[in-house]
Design a protein around this nucleic acid. Structure first.
Lengths: 345, 345
DNA sequence: TTGAAAGCGCTAACAA
DNA sequence: TTGTTAGCGCTTTCAA
């Protein structure tokens, strides 16, 4: 009915409700200090006038922006191709949404640029906290943030990669243990793993986790690093299969799987002999190609995103948080869809 | 040297520079009304103190946020899988970066939610303008925004899909004309096209563009819609090949190509007979499989992103802008890489 | 060219 | 429980 067009402020609401502006503020923020009657009246009027808080004013008065920062590295691949990234973002974003927070996104062309964005944010108050993705070994962002120590930040990755920062990570040690024992149960004793680039922190963490798990379970284990190309993954696979200690099962890190565009079907049809088992971490597959079986070792990325959001909200509240663990990987066996082609290389 | 830690404001700068706060403001914003001597002094002091403007205060005073809004539909696929999306975002973001703007990102779980986010933004001043992606036919967002008319918005897509809004689009008519004449030059007279979902605005625009181009050049033409799955694309291809008027060339819309994970190689190896030419719009391929030729009909998505950013900046300045056209598609012929496998279905 | 001061819209401390 | 008022940090008008 009363569709106002120009900026309706808290004073407009106060006036038409016949109360003071502070009463309005209290009422609308659900704070005490105002009677239920006034609160109801204020809410009704605010609704009718279509009032919404001016975010800039709110931010200024409260020294809080209700925004969290996200820096996208110029290489869009890291965001676009890795499916877990978007899954996380989806959980992350929807949880922020529920709490009336939003994400501020900026683009960095280099590590230096990224650092200067972080500096900018800590000085301008443009965000309340920030999310650190794709941790690397000796990551300069981690350094900077622990040094500044004034901007809450959550790093997604193993605690060892960001010792002083709150982190959210999936328990690679238990995942590796279970992956290996799963393959072992199917009779495999020589297992290899195709890992992502060496400088990616996650690859490194997995290296040691798998090494230990394999050692404990007494299976032979080797790994090889690749870049994020299909050719690289194929190359690595060939190298493993031509080696003397040829593995009977190969585990592919999920990022390799995703970035290089490999899939079980392609592996079967194009590169990999039919009697080879393939296991990929996180969102991908374990294929037992001789039997119509697919087993997925899967990470709940959406839930991880939600957890990340909630941790950040608590960080903004000033809470101190250390290393948090995601829900454990799930091992899912199911029938193959049967779309695996029967061709071979 | 003088590393201040707590908030350094414009007054701190003014005091240590021995001038007034307004002088500082003028100096730092490059405005006239202050002598070069003072300006230099102020800049030096500000630098030393590590001053940066508080964004909330700036936004409040100027009624400008230096942010543009982006709403991500809950379906992360639309963002993650379609490669042109991230390419655009990259160009868009870097151009914003140069202008000291950033992107505010929110997640919508439904169309209704998306609309309410738009309403929220127009009321709270949280963004200065917004970018509309993935236009649909009779898009409710277009309706809402033309009705509100207070929030500048740029729609990415054909002007016919958002008649009242500024739009940025690639010229499908000329692209279709060139695609068809290209295939025609290779002797094709029966051409088919595998399009994306019917409700996607872009599919619709292409339908009519290709129909017209084919009519003008006197070639037979048909199209079929698919969903964004590999199976759907394969299904559609089969249907076309089993039809009476079997085409000798099939054009795949780039989004189908990207979303369904098809590639020239797969087409050759898995689904499509070897004597079939494949053409995909935008970032993908025309394969002349009998000869070692690949032709790409490619859209410069990064440049499109940059253009989008600059248009938005002008919109924020109050400029009136109508339909803008991206640089035309480029037709690139090159040698095949030779990785196309020789297997067949 | 300068400086003082009045906003911008909201929050929160303080009085009434 | 209320209303008044002083900030939050910056921009910008207006006098000096």
């Amino acid at each position: 009915m009363t569709i106002q067009h120009d900026k309706v402020t808290i004073f407009d609401v106060a006036k038409t409700a016949g109360v003071s502006s502070s009463a309005v503020s209290y009422a609308l923020n659900g704070k005490s200090g105002v009677s239920e009657v006034t609160r109801a009246k204020v809410l009704k009027v605010a609704q009718e006038l279509g009032w919404k808080p001016n975010r800039a004013a709110q931010s200024l008065a409260q020294a809080k922006s209700r925004r969290v920062g996200l820096i996208m590295n110029r290489d869009p691949n890291l965001f676009s191709v890795e499916p877990s990234m978007m899954g996380m973002l989806s959980g992350f974003g929807s949880e922020l949404e529920r709490n009336d927070y939003s994400m501020l996104l900026r683009l960095a062309g280099s590590s230096t640029e990224e650092l200067s964005i972080i500096r900018d944010w800590t000085a301008t108050g443009n965000v309340d906290a920030l999310l650190l993705l794709h941790l690397e070994i000796d990551d300069p962002r981690v350094d900077l943030l622990t040094k500044l120590s004034t901007m809450p930040a959550l790093a997604i990755g193993d605690p060892t990669l960001a010792p002083e920062l709150p982190t959210l990570h999936s328990d690679m040690w238990s995942a590796a243990e279970r992956a290996i024992s799963h393959l072992r149960r199917y009779g495999h004793r020589k297992i290899a793993r195709v890992a992502g680039p060496e400088e990616i922190g996650q690859s490194h963490v997995r290296n040691t986790a798998f090494l230990q798990a394999a050692g404990q379970q007494g299976v032979q284990y080797q790994f090889v690093h690749t870049d994020y190309t299909a050719d690289g993954a194929v190359e690595a696979t060939r190298a493993l299969l031509n080696a003397e200690e040829k593995p009977t099962a190969i585990i592919y890190d999920n990022d390799v799987m995703a970035m290089s565009g490999l899939s079980c079907a392609q592996q079967d049809g194009v590169v990999v002999p039919r009697d080879l088992s393939i296991m990929a971490m996180e969102d991908s597959f374990v294929c037992h190609i001789m039997s119509p079986h697919i087993t997925a070792m899967s990470r709940n990325v959406t839930e991880a995103g939600r957890m990340a959001a909630n941790i950040m909200l608590r960080l903004v509240e000033g809470e101190h948080i250390g290393a948090v663990s995601e829900p454990p990987y799930e091992l899912i066996e199911r029938e193959s869809t049967g779309t695996v082609p029967s061709t071979n290389a």
